[in-house]
Computed example of a mutant assay.
Amino acid sequence: MCRSIKTLREPFTEDVTADDIEAAALQYVRKISGFRVPAAHNAEAFDKAVAAVAAATRELLETIEVRGSARRSPTG
């Protein structure tokens, strides 16, 4: 996958911010779309995809349980 996306769950990352989630979502969409910056006619689709991936990431991080860790809310 994309090596620049870092693991956002404990114990790898203690304080996950909204910026961390957005950056990971952007990198994911860039990787799978093959576009670093989309053309104007694709910008809306690109932005929607980033928002959807970020929302799914937040939901995942809020609901997964890691043994030995207290549950926390990502997005600082």
Rank of each mutant, 00 (worst) to 15 (best):
I64G: 03
V37M: 03
A18Q: 11
E44H: 08
A56I: 06
R30N: 01
F12P: 02
I32H: 06
A24R: 10
T57G: 02
T7V: 10
R71Q: 15
R30A: 02
E10W: 01
A43C: 01
F35I: 00
E65H: 09
A18P: 00
D19Y: 01
A55C: 03
R72I: 14
A56V: 06
E65K: 15
T57L: 12
V53R: 06
E65G: 08
G68S: 08
R72V: 14
S69W: 12
F35Y: 05
T7G: 02
A25P: 11
V50M: 10
K48P: 03
V53L: 06
S69Q: 14
T63K: 11
G68T: 10
P74A: 13
L61P: 09
T13F: 01
V37C: 00
I21M: 08
I5N: 07
V16Q: 04
A23S: 06
F35R: 01
A18V: 07
I21H: 01
T75L: 12
G76K: 15
V53S: 04
S73V: 11
A18Y: 10
I64E: 00
K48W: 10
Q27P: 03
R58A: 14
V66F: 06
D47C: 07
A23Y: 07
C2T: 09
V53H: 05
E62P: 00
A54Q: 05
I21L: 09
A56Y: 13
I5R: 11
H41K: 09
Y28G: 03
L60K: 12
D20V: 00
V37S: 05
G34H: 05
A43Q: 09
D15W: 04
V66T: 13
R36S: 11
A43R: 10
R67P: 02
A56P: 04
A54K: 13
Q27N: 10
A55H: 12
Y28S: 03
D19G: 05
F12W: 07
A40Y: 07
R9E: 12
D15T: 00
Y28I: 02
L8Q: 05
E62Y: 09
D19R: 08
R36P: 05
A18T: 00
F35C: 02
T63G: 05
V16H: 05
V50W: 14
E10I: 07
V37W: 04
G76R: 14
Y28F: 15
E14L: 04
V29Y: 10
R58L: 13
I5Y: 06
K6C: 01
A56N: 14
T13W: 00
A43M: 03
R9Q: 10
E65F: 09
D20R: 01
E59D: 15
E62N: 13
L26H: 11
E44Y: 07
I5C: 12
E65T: 15
A51M: 12
L26F: 09
P74H: 14
E62S: 14
A23K: 15
A25W: 11
K48L: 15
T13I: 03
A52S: 13
K6G: 04
P11A: 01
E59T: 13
F12G: 03
T63C: 06
C2V: 11
V16L: 04
R71N: 13
K6H: 03
D15F: 02
F35L: 02
S4C: 11
D47N: 15
F46C: 04
